[in-house]
């Protein structure tokens, strides 16, 4: 016995029994099969489950749907940072850092790749890498914060969240990321053993110096000053053929002292980041 499709519909009793879940399995299955094809009966079902509890339940689910639709897109970096234990909202703030974007990190890799490739072809192998590697986090810091880089810089200052904390969070992340990448690249250097680690303390020292200077000047200017100084120093050493000294105990100790001094300046003057005192 078949009835032409579309001409037969669920009656009210059946609808109610289905909604109350008191029909048997076979009937219920039939109802469901019919509902897939009949908008009118779907409406009848909806009308029958219009009690406050059901309506509220569906409204709650819809709110969750909307929230997920609106929800900020979580990128890879943000997920990674969150996985490392940083709170979800801090991770969100980090995600906006220009120098933590995938594109930035990719270009970093390129730069490091060139430095390493160049090292394999020449004798002043270590020198080029030693020049470039410490500047990577410096550039990263310059691009992490500040009125020239961060479009929402002013809004950030006017907000309760401590700007110095945001800066610190960003700089540490940038340092870790760039140092990590540089570290991996260093492993690919031809075995001039000393340059594989000699860049680490200079990197830290230069970065902290940039930060210290940023308490007075803009991050970009600070970074430029530090970078220029470093380039001049390394070039001079290359000319005098004394680059190996950078790995020596004296030089490394000097960098250590620089790190301590710069860190002290940052700590003492950190509240300078909370208000801009110049134009």
């Amino acid at each position: 016995m078949t009835t032409a499709p579309g001409t037969w519909h669920l009656d009210q009793t059946l609808v109610r029994r289905y909604v109350d879940a008191v029909t048997d399995a076979v009937t219920a299955a039939s109802v469901e099969s019919h509902l897939l094809r009949c908008a009118g009966c779907r409406q009848a079902i909806a009308d029958e489950s219009a009690d406050p509890a059901s309506v509220a339940r569906r409204a709650l689910i819809w709110e969750d749907v909307v929230d997920r639709l609106d929800a900020p897109r979580v990128g890879i970096i943000e997920r990674l940072v969150h996985r490392l234990g940083i709170g979800a909202h801090d991770a969100r703030l980090l995600a906006a850092t220009p120098s933590l974007q995938v594109s930035w990190l990719a270009s970093l890799l390129l730069v490091l790749g060139f430095a390493v490739a160049a090292a394999h072809g020449r004798d002043e192998a270590g020198a080029l890498f030693l020049l470039a590697a410490p500047l990577i986090p410096v550039a990263g810091v310059a691009a992490a914060y500040g009125p020239d880089i961060d479009p929402a810089h002013e809004l950030g200052i006017a907000a309760p969240y401590r700007t110095s904390r945001l800066l610190l969070l960003r700089c540490v992340s940038v340092l870790v990321a760039s140092a990590g990448l540089a570290g991996c690249a260093a492993l690919a250097l031809p075995a001039a053993g000393w340059s594989q680690a000699a860049w680490l303390l200079p990197a830290l020292g230069l970065t902290l110096t940039t930060l210290a200077l940023s308490t007075r000047l803009s991050p970009v200017v600070s970074a430029a000053a530090v970078a220029l100084t470093w380039v001049l120093v390394v070039v001079k050493l290359v000319q005098l053929d004394r680059t190996a000294e950078l790995a020596g105990a004296t030089a490394q100790a000097m960098f250590l002292a620089l790190i301590v001094a710069a860190a002290a300046v940052v700590v003492v003057r950190h509240d300078q980041f909370d208000t801009r005192s110049a134009v």
């Binding site: 900020p72 703030l93 906006a96 002013e154 907000a159 309760p160």
Partner: peptide, 20 residues
Amino acid sequence: GFYRHFTAFEFVDYIAILKE
């Protein structure tokens, strides 16, 4: 200034985080 690649929601959400 805005992060141009953010959606309107994402940007306001970001500032909301800065507002604790």
